[in-house]
């Protein structure tokens, strides 16, 4: 990570990789209602550990905006944005206190992502009963987080910038 040009190019490649993972994931059927692994988060976790949270946040937001523009809707944009921003915030904090490995940080990120989406769903629809899905979504977030954490840790170890 020396020149500014190199940084910009690298972040661009990462954003493209994250979008490609979003696209690939759209072919994987959801096992539990609406719960997804969140493959693009492998890239975000990687960036969080390699270049810091500010740049990871930039790539994450660009990824969410472009994905919503290409495959989603205005509605799906709010869900994704809330999930992405909140999970990155929590992961940044957790990484700072240094008590957890990448897997732990990623697990909390996955759970935070789902909780933010439930909150947005309740706000948008006004149906408080959506909170019924919270326990299932917490378990889903843990599962996704473990997977993303293990994958992310592998990439962090093997791919150098």
């Amino acid at each position: 990570m020396k020149s500014r040009t190199k940084t910009v190019a690298l972040l661009g490649v990462c954003a493209a990789a994250a979008m490609m993972l979003s696209y690939i994931e759209s072919f994987i059927p959801s096992v539990v209602y609406g719960v997804k692994i969140g493959l693009p988060n492998i890239v975000i976790v990687y960036l969080l550990y390699k270049v810091g949270s500010a740049k990871a946040a930039g790539v994450s937001i660009v990824r969410v905006l472009l994905t919503a523009l290409l495959f989603g809707s205005v509605m799906s944009l709010w869900y994704s944005l809330a999930g992405a921003v909140f999970s990155l915030l929590i992961m940044t904090l957790l990484k700072k206190i240094k008590a957890f490995s990448i897997v732990g940080v990623s697990v909390m990120g996955g759970v935070a992502h789902n909780m933010a989406q439930v909150a947005v769903a309740v706000l948008i629809t006004g149906v408080g009963a959506i909170a019924y899905y919270l326990p299932a979504l917490i378990v889903g977030g843990i599962t996704a987080g473990v997977f993303i954490g293990i994958a992310g840790a592998t990439v962090v170890k093997r791919v150098d910038i």
């Binding site: 240094k98 957890f100 490995s101 732990g104 917490i138 843990i142």
Partner: peptide, 12 residues
Amino acid sequence: TKRNDIILVLIL
């Protein structure tokens, strides 16, 4: 950190 991870998952 690995032990903390497991505690975190259990708490969740």
